[in-house]
Amino acid sequence: MPETTPVVAEDPEALADFTARVRAGEQIEAGEWMPEEYRFEALRLINMHANSEIMGALPEREWIPRAPSLARKMALTAKVQDEVGHGMLLYRVAETLGRSRDEMIAELVAGRARFHNVFHYPAETWADVAIIQVFVDGAAMQTQGALRSCSYAPYSRVLKRICYEEDFHIQLGLDVWRALAEGTPRQRAMLQDALCRWWTPIMHFFGMPDRVSPHTEKMLAWRIKVKSNEELRQQFLRKFVPIILEYGLDVPDPNLRWVEDEQRYVYTEPDWEELRRVGRNGGPKSAERLALRQRFHAQHAWVREAMSRWRAARADGAVA
């Protein structure tokens, strides 16, 4: 999909009406008139969210075969299943904005689409499962929780279910986290190590502090964006730093501290260049994970073909 916003001359009356409705807190349904730029931005956001769920299944699924108890194995399978299911729901929403799922998946598999930065990193030990479930899902929960009040109704509806399930993931993750944090010294060390490795990607997760630009203003006015990147990052830190401290683990940033006067955390500025690189599918695991997706996509080409022939035969009434 093109990276730049389309320039379309919109009907000024329709545009004004649309903007007024959105400003008044109304939501837009699938199939209603919307400015091309709105469609483009909403689609870009939702398509990337869908991609991220599908790619986000990969780091954790590596630990399904190795989960250390039957209960953990079932719960982790169910958790990854939810992520895949979110992908399904989100691609459906994206489809209402004009792209087919097949097209979006083909683009993702070909490495031409983007997905969230955190899913470009390795999941090296069992403790990574805890970090992903608590902190990555916790971070996602801030963004998605805010977007429940976005202006596109089908997205907003689906986010309600997604957030409900993400909450289960965080609880599940906290249970794994607790077992490790209160476990043997080796288990604790594993957890601390995973936390250190994931800290930067998680700080990156919310993106760079927003520039004050007409584009950001418009996204906020149209409620395709609901809170600023920095607001979401602060919201996340307020909820999740206490969990680290409660279990006596070290926050991986020595400069992180709460500033009472400003009611915010200050932290070491992460390397934003790394985020840009990772975002362009240049992360440590981007190529490997895309190659895996490609392998299965190619392996299943005949299955997809078989299903579409079956569908066509049914539609013709050729198969009873």
């Binding site: 599908i54 299944a57 990969l58 699924r61 399904i64 075969p65 194995k73 399978t77 990854v80 299943q81 895949v84 299911g85 992908g87 399904m88 691609y91 895996l292 299965f296 299943h300 299955v303 997809r304 299903m307």
Partner: peptide, 10 residues
């Protein structure tokens, strides 16, 4: 469970 994440359709 090895299929989780890799099924032929979502």
């Amino acid at each position: 469970s090895e299929w989780t994440g890799f099924g032929p359709d979502i």
